[in-house]
Design a protein around this nucleic acid. Structure first.
Lengths: 179, 179
DNA sequence: GGTGCCATGTAACGAGTTACATGATTGG
DNA sequence: CCAATCATGTAACTCGTTACATGGCACC
């Protein structure tokens, strides 16, 4: 139900919206800690609806397809609250690149170095977009509402995560580069 | 096939071993970037066997159950090498705690702070065991073999990851604690 | 006599990925 | 005219989790 709760949380903090909008939100804001494909989101919405944790209304549109607008129910919010109050264990990490490093001596060192540089670039770019969001969305740090503080902290987590990856890439490139 | 390749990598860098041993290895060394349950490992071994990426021999033991000792085949090693040479995207993160933070205002601030302190402790403990491994297994940093360098870097990734979490927890506790 | 380690599995279910599928509108 | 955006889904498959299952040996 992880994704289910992520959807509920998104419906609570932002306005009711369609599956399509949820996918976009996830791509933009949530994806740094919970990514989801549109197929997953639609399936999850169906299940949430069956449990009456969300309600849904069809909005007729002209010039574009109709949409189903979802809204969290009182039951859904109660379930979400209960879930938040329970404690959660750290997520198991699944890092393909680390598995590759384990047996890195099987391929040429240059290939590994190239891959590390590629990863370095990817995390740099991601970091830039996150830092942009930090500047734009949280210009006045000392005076944040509680809701905003929580949002800010999730962004900080993302920023730290990317920064950390960049630092590791540098360390790795340096260690492997100097024989 | 992520887990499959992780198993192959483990069979390459360490000696051939049983499913049971693999599970232990994963718990001890690999789990900081790829966790796996024994059920998963046994199922994956069966599939690797079917593809002839590993071979297996029954070792008769006295006083304890017999075991199946698995060994990577030439085909398996070729597949592993090919996989390592391909580039890999950053893993999608799935952080339950961040989802909870998103809608954190639904529960009492004290509950969130308690949870953050709990997480802080967990990552502290994990960090200590990783740092111990760093001291014990890599005492002579400047003179590591290539294989050891790679192993060291995966450990560094784990150490950084835990350190980063700790720093974020501190930041979060500070921001939420001071109203 | 109970706990924990060694050693291996099956079965059912839940979650995530990949591929396929449709169809209108807007902007270059 | 082509690509992108809006909008929603189904189907098949793989991967991960939870529960169930067995059975001997060593140690306290």
């Amino acid at each position: 139900m992880g994704l289910g709760f992520a959807i509920l949380a998104s419906l609570v903090v932002e306005s009711p919206c369609s599956g399509y909008d949820l996918v976009k939100r996830f791509d933009e804001r949530v994806s740094c800690f919970w990514a989801a494909s549109h197929q997953q989101v639609y399936r999850e919405l169906r299940q949430l609806k069956e449990r009456d944790w969300v309600s849904c209304e069809t909005v007729i549109q002209t010039g574009r397809p109709n949409k189903q607008v979802y809204c969290i129910t009182a039951l859904g919010q109660a379930q979400l609250t209960e879930w938040i109050e329970a404690s959660s264990e750290p997520t198991a990490i699944r890092e393909e690149l680390m598995v590759k490093m384990l047996a890195g001596h099987l391929v040429s060192e240059q290939k590994i170095l190239d891959e590390l540089k590629r990863r370095y670039e990817i995390h740099q770019e991601k970091l830039i977009t996150l830092k942009d969001m930090e500047c734009k969305d949280f210009p006045d740090l000392p005076h944040l509402s509680l809701e905003k503080k929580f949002l800010y902290l999730t962004l900080r987590r993302g920023i730290r995560y990317e920064t950390d990856w960049i630092a590791w890439c540098e360390e790795a490139i340096q260690l492997l580069g100097t024989n």
